[in-house]
Design a protein around this nucleic acid. Structure first.
Ligand SMILES: [Mn+2]
Ligand SMILES: [Mn+2]
Ligand SMILES: [Zn+2]
Ligand SMILES: [Zn+2]
Lengths: 143, 143
DNA sequence: GATAAATTGAACATCATTTTCATTTCAATT
DNA sequence: AATTGAAATGAAAATGATGTTCAATTTATC
């Protein structure tokens, strides 16, 4: 089984980049954390066990994880870029509570088809898509 | 006919805000410019005819236009907030070329229904949604 | 026109992210 | 295992979009 670690090492090797202690620590920390974390949030978590890891290195490495296809960048309401691991069974969309920040993921092949169809209609080659629904979750409505 | 100018004046009045020369200039400039402009881009355009209008005032006024429902904020790939006038026949989505930045607008009631349905399934009350497709436009593919 | 409240513009502050650069680490080679 | 050149690191400074401050000005009301 090609572990994520192997994938990352592969990517680094093929791009003349080096496997470093920090990169491995950050990858592990990322995979072992809740999803949709920002670089800063991950940095703060890592810090506990690895007080010597630099802020900039976390930013740089998250970018590498995105480039290598291991992570996806997400942009929700706030100003921060968030990351989540890419699963093999690909994309899902997000339903986000304006009040408590809860994030619910959902898939919908019908929507996917319609989007793909729209792109084709306009002779566009799709690279990626962004789809988020914002509102109030049931809990937050009950107030 | 309630012109946009009237709408804005109304909004200002009802909120204890004042109608100022700058606000009128900015509104006019906004309505007379291509859509999806950032505050800075608008500022640079306005500057030609009105060299004395301040940067901060444009930012502040764009926010007011959004609050008053005259404009909508958009966030595409880059870091900037963009604005577009709200039309009466409501929302559309965007197809954006990664290479030349061309923006194509489209509507799709079927997608809209599916999204609303998804929100209902999760007992969410929707406030707004974001849907963008990124890719290469036909022109940029031909290279 | 006097008055109080709101607005303006310039400069400065903020916040996430990026860049710089001296030092350290990696990996290929002897 | 030592050498070595390239890449990476961390701390600090830079950046870029946007927000805030505040003295001076403008607006709406009396
Ligand atoms: Mn997700
Ligand atoms: Mn539009
Ligand atoms: Zn909630
Ligand atoms: Zn294009």
């Amino acid at each position: 089984m090609a572990t994520v670690k192997d994938l990352f090492r592969d990517y680094l090797g093929k791009h003349g980049l080096k496997v470093t202690r920090q990169r491995e620590i950050i990858l592990e920390g990322f995979m072992g954390s809740p999803s949709h974390l920002s670089a800063e949030e991950l940095y703060l978590r890592l810090r506990k066990d690895h007080p010597n890891i630099g802020y900039a290195t976390v930013y740089r490495t998250m970018k590498l994880l995105a480039d290598s296809g291991i992570a996806s960048e997400r942009h929700f309401g706030d100003r921060q870029t968030r990351y989540e691991p890419n699963t093999s069974d690909d994309h899902h969309y997000h339903l986000i509570c304006n009040s408590c920040g809860r994030i619910i993921e959902f898939e919908d092949p019908k929507i996917e088809d319609l989007l793909q169809q729209t792109a084709s209609d306009h002779h566009f080659t799709l690279s990626h898509q962004r789809l988020e629904l914002y509102g109030l979750c049931p809990d937050c409505q009950a107030r």
